[in-house]
């Protein structure tokens, strides 16, 4: 299993994260079913057909606005929220962490920088709330979501756009802009799924985002350890092929939606009715479907994380009812 050594998310944050994930996945499934309708024809049908899919997308979009405004308000009115805002600001540590990650990947550094560490182990005290990747995710999400919500609302009611630009084609330009903007987030979320699903110490899913701080087991070191203690964990027998497969699917998915976004665009509005690659381009069709598969894997992992949380909460409740014996996290030998 995993070493859940430094709790990060409060109960509200874990709940928010899961709801945001569900909503964003729904927006991806409906939005890219529309944008890549040639390649994802089955997804159009599965999410309500050519007219229903737009309604589902708009409902999920309103859900996103509600979630985002809720979260921004919470950040502003709670002291913890205001503190966390400071934790999101990037620093020189984060640049060092990114550089050290490159060195670590190439074998020139022995361990990852504290600001990059997902598994903290004995060194949990050194690890900040957010890794450099985590900070990047928060910033990109903030900018992306703002622009997506504004452009989404603009293309919902097209009259404003059409009036401003004095041409109906302007609405189509904003629809395309909205879709192309989401591509960045789509690619980022695929990476996010790989990052937190394929870490060898946490495979198949990193539970930090699902287990609230208050029930996360903690390890308090009495002494300084030279390593994080990762060498004490046993690698899952399936990790090797599963991580490689997920990595491959992620790369294919990212490359495919990126290429698809260039070919499947709708502005300038083409003369042909059949836009872009479409079903005639088999490789792109397969690749974009693989991208959607990666999202489905993410959705399943998100649900699995919540199942694990539920199980763990039940286990803790049972342990509290029973007389105290050696619990998880207790010492095996001496310490």
């Amino acid at each position: 299993m995993t070493s859940l050594d430094h709790g990060k998310f409060t109960r509200v944050t874990t709940l928010f994260h899961s709801l945001l994930a569900l909503d964003v996945f729904l927006l991806f499934f409906t939005g890219y079913a529309i944008m890549f309708n040639d390649e994802l024809w089955w997804l159009v049908e599965a999410t309500g057909g050519s007219s229903g899919v737009v309604a589902v997308h708009r409902i999920a979009g309103l859900g996103l606005i509600a979630l985002t405004i809720f979260w921004m308000t919470l950040l502003l009115i709670t002291p913890g929220g205001r503190d966390n805002f400071g934790a999101v600001l990037p620093g020189t540590d984060d640049i060092e962490a990114a550089v050290q990650d490159v060195k670590f990947a190439l074998g020139y550094a022995d361990e990852r920088h504290p600001n990059a560490r997902q598994f903290a182990g004995y060194k949990a005290d050194e690890v900040p709330l957010l890794s450099y990747v985590g900070k990047g995710v928060v910033w990109i999400f903030a900018v992306e979501l703002t622009l997506l919500m504004i452009s989404g609302l603009l293309i919902w009611s097209k009259t404003g756009l059409v009036g401003f630009f004095q041409t109906k084609a302007s609405a189509m330009a904003f629809v395309v802009f909205h879709g192309l903007l989401g591509i960045i987030m789509l690619m980022g979320v695929m990476f996010h799924i790989f990052e937190h699903g394929a870490h060898p110490a946490f495979y198949p899913v990193e539970l930090k985002a699902f287990l609230p701080k208050d029930i996360t087991p903690e390890y308090h070191a009495d002494e300084d350890h030279e390593t994080t203690g990762i060498e004490n964990l046993e690698l899952s027998p399936t990790w090797n092929w599963a991580a490689n497969l997920l990595g491959l699917l992620t790369v294919i998915g990212i490359v495919s939606v990126l290429i698809g976004s260039i070919f499947d665009e709708g502005y300038p509005i083409p003369r042909e009715l059949a836009v872009g690659g479409g079903p005639t381009n088999l490789l792109l069709t397969i690749g974009i479907n693989i991208g959607i598969l990666v999202l489905f894997i993410g959705l399943v992992l998100s649900m699995y994380g919540n199942v694990m949380r539920r199980r763990y909460e039940r286990q803790i409740a049972e342990e509290r009812r029973q007389p105290p014996t050696a619990t998880d996290g207790g010492d095996a030998g001496d310490d």
């Binding site: 990650d101 990947a105 190439l106 394929a198 870490h199 060498e231 046993e234 690698l235 991580a243 990595g247």
Partner: peptide
């Protein structure tokens, strides 16, 4: 960054039992 993490994960895995 995907490839970076892929490589880093493989190194971390090699440190584990």
């Amino acid at each position: 960054i995907v490839f970076l993490h892929w490589a880093a994960f493989r190194r971390l895995a090699s440190q584990m039992r």
